[in-house]
């Protein structure tokens, strides 16, 4: 019963918040709505017995990503409303509706192969975090390590890109010319 209530509440909230994200003219509103939506999505994970994912969702999205966006927005002028004129409204509406309908059909279509056998079944009596940990450090170890490297690279790239001075570029060019 609680599950049903929770599901519908979260659904309504998430859809509403994301709607604001997409439609709002103010960047600050959108970002706040996005952060809220992320938190509520973690609620779904908890309903689905995926505690680990729920925690990661809160930590990474609301903690890290949204913080990044917040810092990023400091660079931009966010108090002004974003001016966006939608060109070719007809195309916009057709595409939106068409893709929405198609996605819905695909996802709500009855699943044919209902008798899928789990390759890595959830273990009885063992916590979700434990099983995920087992899987991550055995079968998905290489992917996990690669993801770690990817994050490291992304972090360095972010720092370098933001910290780069624009004149440095032209300096580089001059140095290159002199070298030639």
């Amino acid at each position: 019963m609680y599950e049903i209530i929770a599901f519908y509440t979260f659904s309504a909230l998430v859809i509403g918040l994301f709607g604001i994200v997409v439609l709002s003219k103010n960047a600050l509103y959108s970002m706040t709505a996005l952060a809220g939506g992320m938190v509520f999505i973690s609620g779904f994970f908890f309903i689905l017995d995926a505690e680990f994912l729920g925690v990661v969702q809160i930590v990474v999205y609301t903690g890290a990503i949204m913080a990044l966006y917040a810092f990023g927005m400091m660079f931009f002028d966010t108090t002004r409303d974003v001016k966006e004129d939608i060109r070719c409204k007809k195309i916009f509406y057709t595409l939106s509706i068409l893709s929405a309908v198609l996605v819905l059909i695909v996802l709500s279509a009855p699943i044919f192969s209902a008798n899928i056998e789990a390759i890595y079944p959830t273990l009885e009596g063992v916590g979700n975090v434990q099983t995920i940990g087992l899987l991550l450090f055995t079968k998905y170890l290489v992917a996990f390590e690669l993801a770690a490297i990817m994050l490291l690279v992304a972090m360095i790239a972010g720092i370098v890109l933001v910290g780069k001075k624009l004149d440095a570029q032209s300096d580089d060019l001059e140095v290159a010319k002199e070298l030639k």
Partner: peptide
């Protein structure tokens, strides 16, 4: 997460 880091940069 990585996408955001690079993209924002």
């Amino acid at each position: 997460a990585s996408e955001v880091a690079v993209g924002l940069g």
